[in-house]
Each structure stands twice: as structure tokens, then as C-alpha cells.
Simulated scan of single mutants.
Amino acid sequence: MLGCLAGLERSWAVLITQLMLPRTPFCALWLSWDSLLGIREPRAYLTTTAKRLIVDRIRRQALEEVHLTELAIFAEAGEGYPSPEQIVATLQALEQIAVALEGVSVKAREAFLLHFLEGQSHAEIATHLGVSTRMVGKYLVQSLSCCLQGVTP
């Protein structure tokens, strides 16, 4: 790129370089090369340049820390949601359960769903279905045995 700029006037070269090259310490030194030749206090110039580099580095680290903090917050917020793979696996498992439960009665299927999906107790299911708690237990055993048969080949 420097060879391409050799034929242009110095002001155009500076303008193009400022637009095309990122701001780095090397670019800053290259752009101020003419002023470097007339420095009376090189130690003071180097000290000022070093201080500015340190300030730039601290600013960049502060921005990185803020960015990493935001990413961590975003990652924590996303933990409560299942991944697409988990959703597909869950849907496949539910399909297998639905196919397995086709072999039981309507009351046994409803008892299974009330107990395992809604978390109701045997007594609540018995009241809902109008049967005894012992019958609810039998319904659950029937449903689970059908699910087990559906899973094993």
C-alpha cells in the first residue's frame, strides 16, 4: 500500500491512510513522521505516547469487560430455555408415549397424563375420574407397562 501512495501528495496520502488503516500506534507514528524529525524532547514524546497507549489499553479492557459481562447475563438468561435439540428429543419422546398409550383405556390414559404431566396425586385423580385410589394405581401400572413395552423392541 505504501508503494501505491508514493506518487500522491503527502496530504492525500495522510487522508487515504487515515481512512483505510485502523488507528494503531504504528500508524500514528508513520503519519507524524515529519514531526518526529524535529522533536527536541524525545523522552517526553515517548512518555506521552506510552501514557496514551496505556489509556487506550485500559479503555479497550473496560469495553471488553462490559461486553463479557453482557454476554454472561445473556447466557444466564438463555439457560431457562431448551435448545432445539432438547425440544426435538422431547417431542419424539411424547410421540412414543402417545403411541404406547393407545393400547390402554381412556381412563388409564387420563390417569397417566394427570399424574405425570400435571403432577396430581392419586386421590385427586380418583376424585376427577370417579374411581377409587386403588383403581388409579392400577391404571398407572397399566399405562407404565404399555410405555415400557413400547420402548423395548
Rank of each mutant, 00 (worst) to 15 (best):
A50C: 04
R57A: 04
Q149T: 03
E41H: 13
E102W: 03
T152A: 10
R43C: 05
V14G: 00
K107P: 02
L113P: 02
F112T: 00
L129S: 03
R23L: 08
I87D: 08
K51A: 15
L29W: 10
L94F: 14
A77W: 04
T90C: 11
C146K: 06
V151G: 00
W30N: 07
L53W: 12
V136E: 03
A6Y: 01
I39T: 14
A28K: 04
L46D: 00
L5Y: 05
R40M: 09
F116T: 11
I16M: 03
L2E: 11
E76T: 15
H115A: 12
V99I: 15
E76N: 11
L37D: 10
V131S: 03
V104W: 01
I16F: 03
G150D: 05
H128K: 13
W30R: 14
V106F: 08
L29T: 04
G80Y: 05
R40L: 09
E118S: 12
R57W: 04
M135C: 07
L144I: 04
V66T: 15
C147M: 05
L37C: 12
Q120I: 01
T133W: 01
A62S: 07
L148A: 09
G150A: 11
L148D: 02
A98G: 07
V88H: 12
A72K: 09
Q92D: 14
R40I: 12
A98M: 03
T133S: 14
